[in-house]
């Protein structure tokens, strides 16, 4: 994974996802895997639309959840790293 401040996470092209209620269901047909995200992960997934950097996502979360910027940044990086390893997101705009 990368975490350059210029790079922006975006959903991988071959992943299908929908948000039902406050939880996202993400299907990766190529890998034959299905996952459900909790509400916090779902919000990060929604914000990772290719238009925001990690920092911008973290800042957005501080306005929506009771979390400070350092905690939000750490959570965003951890989740995006995991999603990147699982090929559910890619990085754009480096």
């Amino acid at each position: 994974m990368t975490n350059s401040s210029l790079e922006r996470p975006v959903h991988a092209a071959n992943v299908a996802a929908r948000v039902y209620g406050s939880d996202a269901v993400v299907i990766s047909p190529d890998q034959g895997m299905v996952r459900m995200f909790n509400p916090t992960a779902t919000r990060i997934w929604q914000l990772a639309d290719g238009s925001r950097s990690v920092e911008e996502i973290a800042v957005a979360l501080t306005g929506e959840f009771d979390v400070d910027l350092a905690q939000a940044r750490q959570s965003v990086l951890r989740l995006l790293s995991e999603l990147s390893e699982k090929q559910l997101i890619t990085w754009t705009g480096a």
Partner: peptide
């Protein structure tokens, strides 16, 4: 809703094995 979808996916994985079908199925 998300629990229901996950439950349905347990028995409908054949419907989402293609990306285009997965999008429509969801």
């Amino acid at each position: 809703p998300s629990e229901a979808v996950m439950e349905l996916l347990r028995t409908h994985i054949a419907a989402v094995e293609r990306f285009s079908s997965a999008e429509i199925w969801m």
